[in-house]
Design a protein around this nucleic acid. Structure first.
Lengths: 253, 253
DNA sequence: AAGAACCGTATTGTATGCGATTATTGAAGA
DNA sequence: TCTTCAATAATCGCATACAATACGGTTCTT
């Protein structure tokens, strides 16, 4: 699976500074950060996985310095764990941390709902409705597409508040929820019920802040019970390995 | 003064930055981060102030590498602004950002209040009451001590929820509020009314979640309604950082 | 004198190197 | 065979080196 290293940007030793007509001299540190972030969220890098600085740097075509910088930022956001002198791992939240994340997320999104109630522009309403229709369509074949869309619905709402900090926090909580569901969630239940999204839009539109908040609260609560409270009790290595042992005709002692 | 390239000499690889007796192999990157963080929160580094990597590194006795790492983390937390190719400044939030921060903070702390209502242990109650008494005492001479204590009250509450993420967010919002009040707040009005803290404790104790949340909401709301304009002066970075370097065990070169 | 092109300097962006710490392997001893 | 321990390999922490970019002042042009 390891592909030959492909530098992540125009890493060319630019012949002469002058001719750099290419778009953005965006710091590559940020590119590294974003690449790793996506990789973690999309679970290409699985929870708990070791993250050695130099192999990652090599793979991305940058030096360890930049990888380290990215790790630091990801650690603040709770996506990687940084252990002194022992390197970085993709975060592996405990069940308790998971509970915490969901609680905070509920608080944040309730705020989103209150903020938005009665303030949606027609354009925003339309966008949300369109989104929900997409969700419905995707829901039929129940692929990973469905999951992505459910998540984006919440991000869209946060964006519409116009509160940048609130958006950032919701995104952060959201990413961590992805991690958590990757660990403790059941395989592919689409996490959000589309009908609940519909109701929420309606309440927002009606300007009923209290009802919107309550709906959001209930909605996220039910995500937890749907996806989380059916723990695939694999906190233990044994559970993970059991099927493999079986298929190889080995008997765990 | 550019050094004429001197092939390794004066700065021999020191065995360790500090005297050998240190029992704590605490990464120095973290020390730098904490020093800068405190300096910003306590407004020794004023909002908008330029943060040159090398003078800071020199003052703290570390290389630019570590300073940069700290900047990255502080930027995620919104305490530092990082402009590509133009370095770092202490964040200077706009009024709109200020509004956003306060709104999020309100949402978070309401969550704290709801979480805590009816769940305070006797020990926790006692701690809070003791704290409020301290506030009252400090309030008489109305120094900076009074401000610090008011802030700590909210942090203490967040701690008591046992929700680490919630605590982190409250702390973050809190620090940013310090910045904001430094810019837009009036000089030294102690920001929290002690009586409101008292009422809040009472509601928590009574287990009245709704009332506690409402009180918290109102309390923070009333903090906001004290926003005014204020000028700023600038000092030399070196002087400002010296005490922080000292307290973190860093040695200026 | 106002503006544009120019150049030296201060700073930032990134890579590399070196000592320190941790993990791993393999051999000796029980 | 199971430990214990040492030597080695892998990795991290941090400083330094070098390249790229932005800033400020000067000179040249009109």
């Amino acid at each position: 699976m390891p592909h030959p290293a492909r530098p992540l940007a125009a890493n060319k030793p630019r012949p002469n500074g002058k001719s750099a007509e290419a778009g953005t001299p965006v710091p590559r540190a940020q590119a590294v950060y974003k690449a790793l972030r996506r990789a973690i969220i999309e679970q290409a890098l699985k929870p708990g996985m070791k993250l050695p600085e130099d192999s990652i740097g090599e793979q991305l075509g940058v030096s360890r310095t930049l990888v380290r910088e990215a790790f630091g930022r990801l650690a603040v956001e709770g996506l990687v764990e940084l252990k002194p002198n022992r390197g970085a791992n993709v975060a592996y939240p405990t069940l308790e941390e998971a509970r915490d994340v969901f609680e905070v997320r509920r608080g944040l999104e309730r705020l989103v709902a209150e903020n938005l109630a009665g303030r949606l522009t027609p354009a925003q309403s339309a966008e949300l409705e369109a989104h929900v229709r997409l969700e419905e369509k995707a829901h039929e074949q129940d692929g990973p597409e469905s999951i992505r869309l459910s998540g984006e619905f919440h991000i869209k709402l946060a964006e519409m508040t116009g509160n940048a900090l609130l958006l950032r926090y919701v995104q952060e909580a959201s990413s961590r929820c992805s991690l958590i569901l990757a660990i403790y969630g059941r395989p592919h239940s689409s996490e959000c019920a589309v009908s609940e999204h519909r109701q929420l839009i309606e309440a927002l539109h009606a300007g009923d802040a209290a009802r919107a908040a309550a709906l959001m609260d209930h909605h996220l609560q039910s995500v937890v019970t749907r996806a989380l409270l059916a723990p695939r009790g694999e906190r233990d290595i044994r559970d993970v390995l059991a099927p493999y042992a079986l298929s190889e005709g080995l008997t765990p002692s």
